[in-house]
Design a protein around this nucleic acid. Structure first.
Length: 119
DNA sequence: CCTATGACAGACA
DNA sequence: GTGTCTGCCATAG
């Protein structure tokens, strides 16, 4: 249940107005090959989890839910927060894909420290 | 131990 | 662009 909770945490971290892919979430949860598990978690999750599930899309930049079984709702929720979704369900990843800020590397911290002239 | 499931992804024709 | 095939692996039963 460790992996599953990390998946949920990662999904909750997706900012409003942006999207993340299944495999992206899997990677953040610690297993880059576990995209299908992310799908499984979402499929099984009930609304009490309060997950921004609609911000998770597939690697082709599309809504994976079939029409009539969630597609329309996901599209509506995304549009509501400013994400442009084509009628086909496609979303421009170059615009909306979430790029989590990486933790600064040691080298980066060192660089800043020197810039600021701390000793 | 099995087998089945899953809102996936990448490679290929 | 489509369609097919294969690998993937945590869970549930």
């Amino acid at each position: 249940m460790e992996f599953e909770s990390r998946v949920k945490k990662a999904i909750k971290a997706i900012p409003r107005g942006q999207v993340a892919t299944y495999s992206q979430i899997a990677s953040l949860a610690g297993d880059y090959k576990a995209a299908r598990q992310v799908a499984r978690v979402l499929h099984a999750s009930s609304d009490k989890d309060r997950l921004p599930w609609h911000r998770v899309i597939n690697s082709r930049g599309g809504i994976s839910l079939p029409r009539g079984r969630g597609f329309e709702q996901q599209r509506r929720l995304l549009k509501r927060e400013g994400v442009a979704v084509e009628a086909s369900g496609r979303i421009d990843l170059n615009v909306y894909l979430w790029e989590p800020a990486p933790a600064p590397s040691r080298a980066a911290r060192e660089f800043v420290r020197r810039l600021m002239g701390e000793d």
